[in-house]
Design a protein around this nucleic acid. Structure first.
Length: 600
DNA sequence: CCCCCCCC
């Protein structure tokens, strides 16, 4: 899939994003729908009433701030680095709040947050992404701050949704996302000609659905919203002061200069981030960290320079202490990863609705990624255990055992947890691999070449890459008649390339290829890409047919699907250069599909 | 073989 160039977009896009800015100090609490509509000219959501259910109301029992995720409190949420256990998240959030209060309500800077964590505990947890067009706004939190992200991807729809999904479908889908941990990937930050900031995601997967307690806990505590008006105009790159990994947690470097503490005058009084029901832990309106309209010279973050602007391309599982500190993306070629609209189909695959079978979706979702962290069993907060991951063998697609099959749930979790969540509509994940035979042999022992070395002049090649993004099947009517196709964006350690499957190849491979998994690919054709439509950082693109060989790789640990280089926390987003790409994992507090946007 | 969305 062709990373599209930065979408400088549509007016509506910019408008939507403008909502992130300033006045959007609304707390993540879903109880404040109006906040989203402050622009009378925009009709962003279906209707306030449908969203007014605060997650907490749905899970009254979990409202207490002391409530902790029941199970596996010591386990990291799926896809989080092993150091990031729930206990850590909670502890970290508490420390962050304490620091915030100590600072008189000012949001701790990234630097300060880093200092709250143990040297080896990454304090930046997320991976985020967004799109444009038919936007969707998701309010997420990383435990420290929260923000709204716009996405054109519709929420994973419940089974039986009609093809243009009905409002009810969308609402149900939106509700189902509350309390989910999602992976929002390939976030693109761009600036429109009019100066608006666009934050778009190309990947959206539900990793876990059992995090209501954590989400509620986060919601019960006021956290500053991170708005994005303060995105640097041009690639401002924080001075790479070597990350200060080790600061004893207790010592809050309150000394850290907080320019932020002086919110620009323009800041709306609304600054009180969470006017809502939860009494502010005591932080002054000043807390409103990001004066919207006037992009602070670089808000708190400025104080916390994000070290190396050029993060390592690949990250060692845990050695990288503070991925967050790396604003890798800043080094990204602008526009290299433009927003890409996700189709509903994809969303469905990532639906939070679980199947009755209660598959360990978390594990499924993370499979691949978690493997990067030896010793970490993929698991979510609770009961869902990681399915025994079959000894990484060369698994032939289509011949997997049921268990393996489970693991394949694409990114997706898609099964709904029966346990008391409001999302109870189980429905099977789409895109399950078929049970067909492919007669392909494992190629684990085969040698493969790096994607970057692939050219039209390489005779017989085998590549080993992760399906970073799988597009939807598109029907078309070309000169040779109708056809169908889908694209995937393949990625390996240091390269990427787009591949296309046409017609019969679609039928054969579409369901086999799953986003996030690593495969050996052979038998495809290489041709120069058309830079007009393909923006991957590769001069060529691939085409596979039904006779090609594609076999899942035994392990994808060396090809991180979530590059730590791109990991940032929410606050880190604003520090990114325009056109940079970042990743983060956050908890969805609220998810509201946008019904329509009326541009004035 | 497409190429939708953005740019050229």
């Amino acid at each position: 899939m062709p990373p599209l160039p930065p979408y400088h977009g549509t007016a509506e896009c910019s408008e939507v994003n403008s909502s992130f800015s300033s006045r959007e100090n609304a707390p993540p609490h879903s109880s404040r729908p109006p906040a989203y509509n402050d622009h009378s000219s925009y009709q962003l959501f279906h209707g306030p009433s449908s969203y007014s259910r605060p997650p907490s109301s749905a899970h009254p029992s979990a409202g207490s701030s002391e409530h902790r995720p029941e199970t596996s409190s010591e386990q990291p949420p799926p896809d989080f680095p092993p150091e990031i256990s729930f206990a850590f998240l909670v502890k970290f959030a508490d420390a962050a709040f304490a620091l915030q209060q100590q600072k008189g309500g000012a949001c701790p800077s990234a630097q300060e947050l880093l200092q709250l964590a143990d040297p080896l505990e990454p304090c930046l947890l997320c991976l985020a992404a967004l799109h444009a067009k038919k936007k969707t706004i998701i309010t997420v939190s990383d435990g420290v701050s929260w923000c709204r992200i716009a996405s054109t991807q519709l929420p994973p729809l419940p089974p039986g949704s009609s093809d243009p999904p009905t409002e009810e479908d969308l609402n149900a889908a939106a509700l189902a996302l509350s309390g989910c941990i999602v992976r929002l990937g390939n976030i693109s930050i761009t600036r429109t000609p009019r100066g608006k900031h666009i934050i778009l995601a190309r990947a959206f997967q539900v990793i876990s659905q059992n995090c209501q307690a954590l989400a509620e806990r986060l919601q019960t505590q006021r956290r500053p919203e991170v708005v994005f008006p303060s995105l640097p105009e041009g690639g401002h790159t924080a001075p790479p002061s070597s990350s200060p990994p080790s600061y004893p947690p207790p010592s809050y470097p309150s000394s850290a200069p907080r320019p932020s503490s002086h919110p620009p005058p323009s800041y709306p009084s609304s600054s009180a981030p969470h006017p809502s029901s939860h009494p502010p832990p005591s932080y002054p309106s000043s807390s409103a960290p990001h004066p919207s309209s006037h992009p602070p010279p670089s808000y708190p973050s400025s104080s916390a320079p994000h070290p190396s602007s050029h993060p390592p391309p690949s990250y060692p599982s845990s050695s990288a202490p503070h991925p967050s500190s790396h604003h890798a993306s800043s080094s990204y070629p602008p526009s290299s990863h433009p927003p890409r609209a996700f189709s509903r189909d994809e969303s469905v695959r990532n639906a939070p609705f679980r199947q009755a079978t209660g598959e360990p979706e978390a594990a499924a979702a993370v499979r691949g990624e978690l493997r990067q962290f030896p010793g970490q069993e993929p698991r979510c907060t609770d009961t869902r255990q990681a399915p025994a991951v079959p000894p990484a063998g060369h698994q032939l697609y289509g011949q997997q055992s049921r268990g393996a099959d489970d693991l394949q749930a694409p990114a997706g979790p898609q099964r709904h947890q029966s346990s008391g969540s409001h999302r109870s509509t189980p429905y099977p994940a789409a895109g399950q691999p078929q049970q067909g035979q492919h007669g392909l042999r494992p190629m684990g022992a085969e040698s493969f070449i790096p994607l970057k070395d692939l050219t039209a002049y390489v005779a017989k090649w085998t590549i080993r890459a992760r399906v970073d993004v799988k597009g939807d099947i598109r029907k078309y009517n070309g000169a040779r008649g109708p056809g169908q196709l889908f694209n995937v964006e393949l990625k390996d350690k240091d390269g990427e390339i787009r591949a296309t499957f046409f017609n019969a190849a679609v039928d054969k491979w579409y369901n086999i290829l799953q986003e996030g998994k690593v495969y050996y690919f052979r038998g495809g054709s290489v041709k120069p890409k058309n830079p007009r439509f393909n923006h991957t950082r590769h001069d060529y693109e691939l085409t596979f047919d039904e006779k090609s060989s594609i076999v899942e790789a035994e392990s994808g640990a060396d090809i991180p699907s979530i590059s730590r280089a791109d990991l940032v926390d929410i606050r880190g987003i604003e520090e990114k250069e325009v056109n940079s790409t970042v990743s983060l994992i956050a908890i969805v507090h609220d998810y509201r599909p946008i019904q329509s946007i009326t541009i004035k």
